[in-house]
């Protein structure tokens, strides 16, 4: 199988260019996330930005991969995500969509 046949999200993300911002545009309230049962952000995000770190009991947020769709903020049951746009000119760059 060539790399391009791999249909994982990780591989899909390699098709996108980003202009990375030094600071995050997605801030979560870790206290709320610790008490969150289903953690839907971890499975609905089309870029797999969120993952739960069991050992540190903390939500990892790989904001650099964000596609800026806005779904996580709507789905979060506790409104734990302070969702902003990345700084001007930062974030995802789409050329063929």
């Amino acid at each position: 199988m060539t790399q391009r046949d791999d249909n994982s999200i990780e591989n899909k993300l390699t098709s996108i260019k980003y202009n990375c911002s030094k600071n995050t545009h997605l801030r979560v309230n870790q206290e709320m996330c610790r008490n969150c049962q289903k953690r839907p952000c971890c499975y609905i995000c089309p870029a797999k930005v969120y993952s739960w770190d069991d050992t540190q009991s903390k939500l990892n947020v790989e904001y650099e991969n964000c596609l800026e769709c806005g779904a996580c903020k709507v789905v979060c049951p506790f409104k734990s995500i302070d969702w902003e746009y990345p700084n001007a000119s930062c974030g995802v760059i789409l050329k063929n969509s």
Binding site: K12, I16, A47, C69, V92, S97
Partner: peptide, 10 residues
């Protein structure tokens, strides 16, 4: 076909 760009939107 080959993947050129992936995207998401609400």
């Amino acid at each position: 076909s080959e993947l050129l760009e992936y995207s998401a939107h609400l």
